[in-house]
Design a protein around this nucleic acid. Structure first.
Lengths: 194, 194
DNA sequence: GTGAACATGTAAACAGTTACATGATTCT
DNA sequence: AGAATCATGTAACTGTTTACATGTTCAC
């Protein structure tokens, strides 16, 4: 039994649903296509597993936000979803709500802090590994940037926003890389002093 | 019934438990004190509600990682926890494990992306609000920095790590601020052009 | 003695992850 | 015909948040 009748319930965030709505407005898609597209453009600021996506799509269909496209060649189990009017209204309503900046949850920072107390230099290799991972991410983002936005028209509002979202991804990766390249050598020095 | 016998189960992350262990090594504390300390130093890279903290502390006590200090003046319901040998071993083991950089989950980016598709300038006020929030965070972090680390000894390894963790918080906030101060004026221009 | 801050807890809902199964399509 | 990839799903679990209750301590 629910603690609260629905009319008293807080509106939950459900960002994933709204990411999917946005994606589906761009182009009606199957769950699989959405999952694949997440791995690229949208993935770096809101990712999801295929399981989450299918569950969310079913839920949204039940609410009437989206519907399945009856394709001419509807062979197999493939279901292509499209956004309904209700979905557009929901997205527009949600869009103007207020929220908080995300809470950071960086496991490696927890490890580093633990090491500060316990001693040893056991987190150094992990920091180096993360430096490589962040460099890889940066390269991927920069590749997309030069492919899609290098010479794009900044007067096209939609395109400009997409570009700046990617730019933020690049900026944050650069921040991590610079920080790691500052911290790692200093920790190596400490290791040598022993 | 569990899908897997315990000896086949994946080791879960449980970062929160290890954050608490680290905090308790620094100083035996009550759940309430831990929650309050989270709001300061550690909070920006791993936060938790009081509820989560109490649940986790109970769990860790059952596992023998921590124990309650039998205080002389053990009045009221206050329980002061301290780390046991088992807890230190657990933390040391966990510390050297590998992990992934955190997945970003920024709601405001979802809204911005939605707006890129739906149009309107309804997300602008929210971007401005976030700029203010990030500036506030930056100020808090910089205040702690100048208070605790400005003239600290960089040859003290523990202190240096604490300083760099805070530095990362500052760097990331600066990244957001710079990005927002670039994007907001451009979106305002678009708004005027209409 | 009353109100604010301290301190802990139960219950429930919500959000995200992992394991596993299985059928359809396409390429060789 | 077999392998790889496309595509969807059930089940269970872990992790996080919210609502609410309740008792303690301390200052006025």
């Amino acid at each position: 039994m629910s603690l609260h009748p629905f009319y008293l319930r807080n509106i939950t965030e459900m960002s994933l649903a709204h990411v999917l709505l946005t994606s589906l407005i761009e182009k009606p898609s199957t769950g699989f296509e959405l999952a694949r597209r997440f791995d690229r453009s949208m993935g770096f600021f809101w990712n999801a597993t295929h399981q989450q996506i299918y569950r969310e799509l079913s839920g949204m269909q039940k609410k009437g936000w989206i519907s399945t496209l009856e394709d001419a060649q509807n062979t197999g189990r493939k279901k292509t979803y499209q956004v309904e009017q209700l979905g557009r209204i929901e997205l527009a309503d949600w869009m103007v709500k207020q929220g908080q900046p995300a809470q950071l949850r960086e496991e490696i920072m927890v490890r580093l802090r633990a090491e500060a107390q316990l001693g040893g230099n056991s987190v150094l290799p992990e920091l180096e590994r993360h430096l490589e991972l962040h460099k890889e991410n940066l390269e991927i983002y920069q590749h997309i940037f030069s492919k899609d936005f290098e010479h794009s028209d900044d007067n096209d509002r939609t395109l400009y926003i997409h570009k700046m979202i990617l730019q933020l991804g690049i900026d944050l990766e650069l921040g991590w890389i610079q920080w790691l390249e500052k911290v790692i050598p200093q920790l190596q020095k400490f290791a040598q002093q022993q």
